[in-house]
């Protein structure tokens, strides 16, 4: 009988990339289901198409270009597909979705060598590419017919898009407790802050991610908004408005916490979160884009190697 011989350890925590990704998928489900309810079949189609495109693209690239065993089994392509769909408006044409998937998987992920190697969050690169290339499709916030109709539906602009039209004071009033449950008008995935937060809590409970990055983003956004709002409420929108709109929750819970493109240490993560929160508020208050979450995350993604170099884990016996 030939027994196995290997160095220690001889047992494993039975955690795998696949299981972690499956947890992320589960965590995204509440928000996805809510978006299906509000936006109906067209959103289901976008989601299905986006996921399918990402998986097929990754499979094809590993097989025909990289000539190595397929990595689609780790489910990360599904996560990218879901996040991409959730970051697009519910009216987005499928061919635009496909271009987004190509940019996300082929350019942002596989060019760097696949999972773990990319510098920027693939889904966000896809989204930003589409935002810059197809602004008309990407800012068409018409609400398609869903299974649940929405009374206070805006069409034409998101809540953040309302700020220049209505002014900060009026815009602030649009945010109420109701926004927590459904915030119609915006990317498909961010319709319900509550559903997103439920998913985030699930990830925390399952110990898939740690809360520090998300919390530091929330805190920074709230703090910056608080200060500016206190200075001039007519010019700058308040903390609650900024937390609940423009993808801050979706970004902070699911995009900024992406393992690959976030710092590994706790303190690095906190700095990274503060950076994201600060940049997004600067873009919103002083930039030409109304949202800015995608740009903020991508910019801070770029700083991750630097943060990882600077912030190490506390070592035993070394002060």
């Amino acid at each position: 009988m030939a027994y196995i011989v290997s160095p220690n350890p001889h047992i494993h925590a039975a955690v795998s990339t696949k299981k972690l990704m499956l947890d992320v998928i589960i965590a995204l489900c509440p928000a996805a289901i809510v978006s299906f309810l509000f936006y109906g079949l067209s959103e289901i189609a976008i989601m299905a198409f986006s996921v399918a495109s990402c998986v097929v693209l990754e499979w094809a690239i590993t097989k025909y270009m990289l000539k190595r065993p397929s990595s689609t089994g780790d489910l990360s392509a599904i996560v990218t597909g879901m996040l991409l769909a959730m970051n697009l408006p519910p009216t987005c044409p499928l061919w635009v979705v496909f271009i987004g998937a190509v940019v996300a998987i082929a350019i942002a992920k596989m060019t760097f060598g696949g999972i773990g190697q990319n510098i920027w969050n693939p889904a966000l690169v896809g989204r930003v590419f589409l935002l810059v290339s197809f602004p008309t499709y990407m800012t068409d916030w018409t609400v398609p017919a869903g299974f649940i109709s929405s009374v206070d539906a805006f069409s034409g602009a998101t809540l953040l898009g309302q700020v220049p039209i209505l002014g900060a004071l009026e815009a602030d009033k649009l945010v109420s407790l109701q926004t927590l449950f459904h915030n119609v008008g915006g990317s498909a995935g961010e319709i319900s802050a509550l559903a997103l937060l439920a998913g985030w809590v699930y990830l925390l409970v399952r110990k898939v991610i740690k809360p520090w990055i998300t919390l530091s983003i929330f805190a920074t956004v709230a703090l910056v908004a608080l200060v500016f709002h206190a200075v001039d409420p007519a010019q700058y929108t308040g903390p609650l408005f900024n937390l609940l709109t423009g993808g801050v929750i979706l970004g902070a819970c699911f995009m900024a916490t992406d393992y690959v493109t976030s710092p590994m240490g706790t303190w690095g993560g906190v700095i990274y979160g503060i950076g994201i929160g600060f940049i997004v508020m600067m873009i919103r208050y002083f930039g030409s884009y109304p949202e800015g979450m995608s740009f903020a995350i991508l910019l801070m993604n770029t700083a991750v190697p630097l943060l990882d170099m600077k912030f190490h884990h506390r070592k035993y016996g070394r002060k």
């Binding site: 027994y3 011989v5 290997s6």
Partner: peptide, 22 residues
């Protein structure tokens, strides 16, 4: 003939440090 199955990192250096070989 192999008398056991090596299941560590695919590196002669690692393997040699572990034992006499498979």
């Amino acid at each position: 003939p192999k008398i056991n199955v090596y299941d560590g990192a695919a590196s002669c250096r690692v393997k040699a440090a572990l034992y006499s070989g498979d």
